[in-house]
Simulated scan of single mutants.
Amino acid sequence: MKKHGVLNRDIAAVLARLGHTDKVVIADCGLPIPEETPCIDLSIKQGYPRFDAILEAILDDMEVESMTLANEIKEYNESLDQHIRNTYEDIPVSYQTHEELKNELKQAKAIIRTGENTPFANVILQAGVIF
Rank of each mutant, 00 (worst) to 15 (best):
G128P: 01
K2M: 11
A53E: 12
I26R: 03
I91R: 00
I33N: 09
H20C: 12
V14M: 06
P34T: 13
D90F: 06
V64I: 13
P32Y: 08
L18P: 00
F51K: 06
A53L: 07
R85N: 15
A127G: 10
E78I: 00
P38H: 10
R9F: 08
K23W: 03
G19V: 09
V14L: 06
I11V: 14
I84M: 11
L69K: 00
H83D: 13
L101R: 07
P38W: 12
Y88W: 14
T68W: 00
E36T: 12
V123P: 00
P34W: 12
M67P: 00
A13L: 07
V129I: 13
P38T: 14
D41Q: 09
S94A: 10
K74T: 12
K102C: 15
N71F: 02
V64A: 12
T118M: 09
E89M: 07
T87Y: 02
A27P: 02
P92M: 08
E72W: 01
K3A: 11
H98D: 15
N117R: 04
N77A: 10
P92Q: 08
F51W: 05
L69I: 03
T114E: 13
H4C: 06
S79M: 11
I112C: 05
M67Q: 02
A127R: 09
E56W: 05
V129M: 10
I44H: 04
N122I: 07
V24G: 00
E99H: 10
D28L: 00
I26K: 01
C29F: 04
A53Q: 09
V14F: 04
I111M: 04
Y88K: 05
L125G: 08
E65D: 12
L15Y: 04
K2H: 11
E104A: 07
I54L: 06
E99M: 11
D28A: 03
T97K: 04
S66A: 15
R85T: 15
V93C: 13
I58E: 11
P34M: 13
L7C: 04
Q107K: 12
L105G: 06
S43I: 03
A121P: 06
H98S: 11
T87I: 02
G115E: 13
V64C: 14
E35S: 09
V6P: 00
Q46W: 05
V93E: 06
A16W: 01
N117T: 12
H4P: 01
G47R: 06
A27H: 01
R50F: 04
E75Y: 01
K109C: 13
G19Y: 06
L42R: 02
I124D: 04
Y76R: 09
I33W: 03
R17W: 02
T37Q: 10
T68R: 02
I91S: 04
Q126T: 15
Y88N: 12
Q82A: 14
I91Q: 02
L69S: 01
Q96K: 07
M62W: 01
P38G: 14
A108H: 06
K74F: 02
S79P: 05
A108R: 01
F120I: 11
I40M: 08
A121S: 15
P92A: 14
L80G: 03
L125H: 08
Y88Q: 11
R50C: 10
E35Q: 07
V93N: 04
L69A: 03
E100A: 15
L105P: 05
Y88A: 10
V123W: 01
G30D: 15
A27W: 00
A27R: 01
D28C: 02
E56D: 15
I26F: 02
